[in-house]
């Protein structure tokens, strides 16, 4: 899966889909999409924070800007997957 998969544009603003609820868990959070009924597991507290704060940033890239290179790529890939599964949506 690549970060430039059609549909996901890290240069654009995104936010958590209002139909998605995040349930805090010891490992991070469980995300449930009330529309697709899909469950995802955000396996890092930092990813949960990132997703929650997404809409405070002008672009996705700005939201991950503080991360170092390997981390940043992993989180961008995770966000691309979340966009593909409609968990996050263009703001």
């Amino acid at each position: 899966m690549s970060t430039d998969s059609p549909g996901f544009d890290p240069a654009a603003p995104y936010r958590l889909n209002p139909r998605v609820a995040l349930r805090p868990e010891p490992f991070g959070a469980l995300a449930y999409h009330f529309g697709t009924r899909k469950l995802s597991f955000l396996k890092a507290p930092a990813l949960v924070e990132l997703v929650r704060d997404l809409e405070a940033h002008p672009t996705v890239l700005a939201a991950v800007d503080h991360l170092a290179a390997p981390e940043k790529d992993r989180y961008l890939r995770a966000l691309a997957t979340l966009a593909e599964t409609d968990m996050i949506v263009p703001a």
Binding site: S40, F41, K43, R74, A78, T81
Partner: peptide
């Protein structure tokens, strides 16, 4: 049912 991909380094797991 529940998901899980053991040994998946990604910080995300999608069902």
């Amino acid at each position: 049912s529940v998901p899980a991909k053991p040994c998946d380094p990604s910080p995300l797991a999608v069902r």
